[in-house]
């Protein structure tokens, strides 16, 4: 769920941009170091960015009937690590704003914070924590909770910008979260299932390629 262009008040747009900028810089520094060590990843990450963009344009069969889109954030974080995902997510969000009018330039900072920082970190953290329960369970939990965290963060951003006149930020959060929950909770489950299917299909047909990615430093993959 992208916050549209001009939706956030000036101070909020500026504040979220200031919050995301250091993480983005850190991500770029990390990316540069990674590219210096493994130059073959330059093209891989570029193509993966295009992949994330194309994936986010796919329509998911959503339970409420509305068309929804996967964020792909969970998958990316599991494959490349959360910090490398920050510059990738930045480029994907910029492209979505410039090629699809999805999101915007003034809200780029806020969107990057929810989709490029919070989502991947939660997805990666949950994946690591639940790793002992089996690969499929961990991938499902990571991807779906990463998606939910993204949506919760966006609701919080909207609530902070537009607090309820009577109930304050808390009531506004309940309103925004409630309205978007209709599409977002089924979407989180579907995204989790989809990510499990992608990982399973990769393991079945392309074990070779997977072995080179961090996700595959797992007992199953080595066996």
């Amino acid at each position: 769920m992208h916050i549209m262009e001009g939706f956030l008040p000036f101070q909020h747009a500026l504040g979220w941009t200031a919050a995301s900028a250091p993480v983005l810089v850190w991500g770029i520094v990390k990316l540069k170091r990674r590219l210096a060590e493994q130059p073959e990843q330059r093209m891989l990450l570029g193509v993966a960015t295009a992949f994330a963009f194309v994936l986010s344009a796919l329509k998911l069969p959503s339970l409420t009937g509305s068309s929804s889109h996967p964020t792909g954030v969970g998958l990316g974080a599991l494959l490349f690590g959360p910090l490398t995902m920050v510059p990738v997510a930045f480029v994907v969000l910029l492209f979505q704003a410039l090629l699809l009018a999805h999101g915007g330039l003034t809200t780029l900072g806020a969107n990057l914070f929810s989709m490029g920082v919070v989502g991947p970190c939660v997805a990666y953290g949950v994946f690591r924590l639940t790793r002992g329960l089996g690969l499929s369970t961990a991938v499902f939990c990571g991807a779906s909770l990463g998606n939910l965290a993204t949506y919760g963060m966006t609701s919080l951003q909207l609530a902070l910008a537009f607090p309820d006149p009577a109930g304050g930020v808390g009531a506004a959060l309940a309103k925004f979260a409630g309205i978007f929950a209709l599409t977002q909770i089924p979407l989180a489950i579907v995204e989790g299932l989809l990510t499990v299917m992608i990982v399973n299909a990769l393991r079945r047909f392309n074990a070779d390629e997977l072995r080179r990615l961090p996700l595959l430093h797992t007992p199953e993959a080595k066996a």
């Binding site: 093209m43 193509v47 299917m197």
Partner: peptide, 29 residues
């Protein structure tokens, strides 16, 4: 079925991504 198809599609695409990237890297190198 369509969820399964989407999963297969994305997985296949990811593999194509991998090969394309390797090809591009070799071409640039």
């Amino acid at each position: 079925q369509s969820l399964k198809s989407l999963g297969l599609l994305a997985a296949n695409l990811l593999v194509q991504v991998w090969h394309q990237a390797l090809g591009l890297h070799l071409a640039a190198a």
